[in-house]
């Protein structure tokens, strides 16, 4: 899976943002602080849920089930707005 080309990641002083292009049906702005920001950045490249988990383990000192839950929630939200190419 990977972020669709109709979205870009924008880094700002206020954190990581997921920004839809004019070609996306979604028109909001997603601010990704903390783990969501990391997940967004990882999704710039082709990966899997397990790939995300492994990368997150290196980044965060948190229990695996917590990271897995964060990844699941993030992907669910991103799928809802049509931001993921499976």
């Amino acid at each position: 899976m990977k972020l669709k080309k109709t979205f870009i990641i924008h880094e700002s002083a206020e954190g990581t943002m997921l920004v839809p292009t004019g070609g996306a049906s979604f028109s909001g702005l997603v601010r990704g602080n903390g783990t969501l920001g990391t997940i967004l950045k990882l999704l710039k490249e082709e990966t899997t849920e397990e790939g995300l988990l492994e990368a997150m383990k290196k980044e965060y000192d948190a229990a695996e089930d917590v990271l897995r839950r964060d990844i699941g929630r993030a992907l669910s939200e991103l799928r809802k707005i049509g931001a993921i190419d499976e």
């Binding site: 080309k5 870009i8 924008h10 943002m17 920004v19 839809p20 292009t21 004019g22 028109s27 702005l29």
Partner: peptide, 18 residues
Amino acid sequence: LFHAIFRPADPVALARTM
């Protein structure tokens, strides 16, 4: 502000917009 600005479909132009 983001809601008010024009969002190009081209990712490069959008990145420049941001």
